[in-house]
Design a protein around this nucleic acid. Structure first.
Lengths: 368, 368
DNA sequence: CTGAAAGCGCTTACAG
DNA sequence: CTGAAAGCGCTTACAG
């Protein structure tokens, strides 16, 4: 390993002050006690007011609120956590390779959860886990320390992790993934795929291919179902529909390129392709261009996800928009619901978990 | 707004158990008290052992450790935070538009900090701020609550935020950005650009262009310097060197496309282009292909960053690799150093802030 | 080297 | 509607 010292650049200008600046006021940060004194009430009352709990007369409430405002009082998270037996944190787990992906899908989801967490006065502890998850070894610290009130799991993860999370004692909500009976916030993959396929059919296409990598993921599986349903409804016969699908591997640009070659290698090329996601669609378009085929005249292409590149591509890609932020928000709200539910022990008798489904939107651009 | 209820999918199978499973053992989580009882010592001693502080005889140390292991004791973060006046958290701030970028630069940096945070028993609170930062309005919650021991700021952010962070009373380390005298962990942009340019010159090129968007960012500025230095050292005359630079706008693919058109519009096209980053380089390559120019025969291209796409591009892009994880790690270590330093009040007399520089590596592929 | 005690800043029954 | 008191689970001087 290396030492930090190895990298210190001594050529930095030295005529400088330090970065640590005092907070200006010498008085230390106020506590609930200071607020109580200022308002002339007990700390119990202050606590009730800032938590909006119990019965407090309007008059004292206002007096407390004014005192808090005047002193610039902000409760310390740790001091609240200790007696209340809650942490004020939620965990956000995603596989590292997913998080690193070029398409900013999970960063969008994360930002949505962060936004909603801010509204709910929660901190989000973002942790990545490896694809090959080994329980004791890779267990997120917040699980070991039981330092969260709930857990969000984004995307596909190892079942071993889900088992661990499920037995942690706090609610778990999956995002864009499904597993057993765990509650989940998912995209309307089937509906989106159906709309996209329907759109191709409406444009007059009758020979259509589905192109995509491994369909093992529940979301991709649902997209295939939506595609099939639309084909069936339109009365297409099986020989009008092709499935260009890899038996393994991610549905990424590289896999898409391989599949596109297979697609165009066939004698009778379909007039339209529903691609399982944008990465695949972009690969198909590039391969088509390489062969001198015109999009959409020779082959129409529709994707799924509406990644940033979709809009900028030449030609701009018709696709299904997924509002990733919104998905994260939705999941966080759902999790908070479950957390509150589990606190008011009333609803113990195992309410069934739900899937919450986020609608999608077909965005018609230049490839169809 | 909408309600969560609007999205509940009632078609989910209902023959299921709830996701909330008890932890198995009915006994509640052990505290330091339980460990003390088990080991037959006081809680003070247990505290000393688990924090590796003060003098404890080897014998009692072992007895305590065994007791802790046996009971599966894990200290609660909140309980430590309260009396110790530390939070165990560090803030990680990045602009939302940067975090959403297609190139996973900042996610890589984040993962590096997370990795190192795990080693140091710290939690990272990732927060995004808008480009147009308004102090009171967008202030991260961890600042309001003073809920961090230190702050990492990744990439360019509004000066108003840096001012707020600097006066928060905790150390701040910038990542891939520089500002006044704040400590920073930066990439060796100048060195990387110098090596890349030198490489072009070594390949025999004498007419070279620098291509990139707005050079306002310190990192890009440093790259330009490295480029210029290499040109100067090689004795290139000013008329052999072109600067195709936008006066504003990000150095992204779209801007790169515009610049590439300008580059190729000139009568005398250079034989090589040093692009300020990979996004720009990829745009140049695509534009060259559109004009029937061969890369690298008609024009050699080198980028900077080594984004995932660089390797997969046809032809694969020669570029300068930046180990984003490593950068994050480095910054986190630096921050922890500063935090510890600020705790042991000895080093008060304003030590000068440093820049810690991460080396880069030239990756030669097929475009040069 | 070890323990008793005070205290961190809150919440939460429990009285009144 | 309000307050006194106990307690959350640790850390940290301070004695010894």
């Amino acid at each position: 390993m290396f030492s930090i010292r190895d990298y210190v650049d001594r050529n930095v200008s030295r005529n400088s002050t330090t970065s640590r600046v005092s907070t200006g006021s010498t008085t230390k940060r106020p506590t609930i006690k200071d607020v109580a004194a200022q308002a002339g009430v007990s700390i119990s009352t202050v606590s009730l007011v800032i938590n909006d709990k119990g019965y407090v007369s309007d008059q004292t409430r206002e007096r407390v609120q004014e005192a808090a405002r005047k002193l610039n009082f902000v409760p310390r998270p740790a001091a609240r956590a200790l007696p209340s037996k809650t942490t004020g944190n939620v965990g956000f787990v995603v596989r590292d390779d997913h998080f690193r992906r070029t398409e900013p899908f999970y960063t969008g989801v994360y930002l949505g959860t962060e936004f909603e967490a801010n509204n709910r006065e929660l901190y989000v502890l973002l942790t990545t886990i490896p694809t090959e998850y080994v329980p004791g070894k890779h267990t997120p610290r917040f699980l070991r320390e039981q330092n969260v009130d709930g857990i969000l799991v984004a995307g596909k993860v190892a079942p071993a992790f889900l088992a661990e999370a499920s037995t942690s004692g706090v609610p778990v909500v999956l995002i864009d993934f499904e597993h057993d009976t765990l509650p989940a916030a998912v995209i309307d993959n089937r509906g989106g795929a159906h709309a996209a396929t329907r759109h191709l059919i409406d444009r007059g296409h009758r020979h259509i291919a589905l192109v995509g990598g491994d369909m093992d993921h529940p979301s991709l599986h649902a997209r295939r179902e939506g595609f099939q349903l639309a084909c069936f409804e339109a009365g297409l016969s099986p020989d009008q529909v092709q499935f260009i699908v890899a038996s393994e591997g991610e549905s990424d640009y590289a896999t898409g390129t391989v599949l596109a070659k297979r697609l165009f290698a066939n004698g009778a090329v379909p007039t339209a392709a529903f691609c399982i996601n944008d990465a695949t669609a972009l690969a198909v378009i590039d391969q088509a261009a390489g062969l001198g085929l015109k999009v959409p005249d020779d082959i129409a292409v529709v994707g799924f996800d509406d990644v940033p590149q979709a809009k900028h591509n030449q030609p701009a890609l018709t696709t299904v928009r997924v509002q990733t932020d919104h998905l994260g928000e939705l999941a966080m709200r759902y999790l908070v619901d479950l957390i509150e539910e589990s606190r008011s022990r009333k609803v113990r008798p195992g309410r069934d978990p739900h899937r919450i489904t986020l609608p999608t939107e077909l965005v018609i651009r230049d490839t169809t």
